[in-house]
Amino acid sequence: DKQWQKELDFQDMYVYYHIKQSQGDADLSLPKRNWYALKVIVDFLEKQEFVESNKEGTHFSITYKAMDIILKNILSGTPKNGNEKDSRRRFSKHATERSQDTRRYVTGDVFRDISIRRTMREIARRRRKTSEINRHDLRIFLKEHREPKSDILLCVDSSGSMGFHRKLIMARLTAAAIARDALRNGNRVGVVTFDDLGKARVTPTDNEETVMRYITGITSGGNTNIGDGLKCAGTILRRERGRNRKVIMLITDGEPTAITQKAIRTLEKSDKKDMTGEYAVIEARNASAAGIETSVIHITDEKATGKNLVESIAKAGHGEVKRVVRPDDLRTIMI
């Protein structure tokens, strides 16, 4: 034990004494010590239900339980802009509904908003004769803002480029934060991922565990076909026949590298040099024509590579762009 340095953390001590107890005085090589250290930590996390392995035991991912704890820690506190309520409604549009309170009639009010019961009560209170009744005796229902229900399709970039600089980690955290908040506010959420092609993973549902379990297991690989990801998301939302507002939330680093042969033939006469980016803009425009809004969460760094493309996509989709560089930025992009 004399070999320990002055500065220790609990994890190092836990691993050290676990190896010492299980291996005794056996002289372990450095690779073996590192392997045992990793195994001790993973076993502990599995027992706490913070990580889970695939069937073969070759890959591990964090669990829905762990993701929920992480998000609670990241999202606790007030956003940098100081206005949590406004930021959480950044991508929302308000609707109205009647409350049970009333007010006096003013010019421009419509007949269907008149409260017959309250109007009759007002006339009786004032003891009006039939000939004396006028518009000032009419009582109108007040209207209050409410959040409309939405079908939100998370379109997550799972291409190889997301495996660098922890971009996939940020994408998973972002997708999970949006899904968690949206589902707990009565909306439905689905998931599409894309690399070489867009792939439908979870159709719009109100089951939080189903959505979160998929998001926590997203891995990266392949090229980046943003256009096909948007096309896949748009196709799914077009099939939803309900009256819910429809939104695509594109989560990407904004650096496309792939396009389908069919899209190339469509864009052959285009004067745009970057057909991969143009394809993405066109699909956002197509979704908008079907009444589907497309907003973008740009997973990037301080250089903001891909900024012009994500802004073009959001403009075509009548949505907004939010940039995520670090975990704290999640507080400002909540719906």
Rank of each mutant, 00 (worst) to 15 (best):
N187A: 02
R188W: 01
V191Q: 11
F194T: 04
D196V: 02
G198F: 03
R201M: 10
V202R: 00
V202N: 00
T203F: 11
P204G: 06
T205W: 03
T205P: 00
N207L: 03
N207E: 11
T210I: 11
I215L: 14
I215P: 00
G217E: 11
S220R: 06
G221Q: 04
G221V: 08
G222Y: 09
N223F: 04
T224S: 03
D228R: 01
G234M: 06
T235W: 08
T235Q: 09
T235H: 11
R239G: 04
E240F: 05
R241T: 13
R241M: 06
G242D: 15
G242N: 15
R243G: 05
N244Y: 14
R245D: 09
R245K: 14
V247A: 04
L250V: 09
L250G: 11
D253E: 10
E255P: 02
A258G: 05
K262S: 10
E268C: 01
E268I: 05
K269T: 08
K272D: 09
M275V: 12
T276S: 10
G277M: 07
E283C: 02
E283K: 14
A289D: 13
A290M: 08
I292Q: 06
S295Y: 03
V296P: 01
I299K: 06
I299T: 14
D301W: 12
T305L: 07
G306P: 10
K307F: 08
V310S: 10
I313W: 02
K315G: 03
A316K: 11
E320H: 11
E320V: 05
V321L: 03
K322Y: 07
K322R: 14
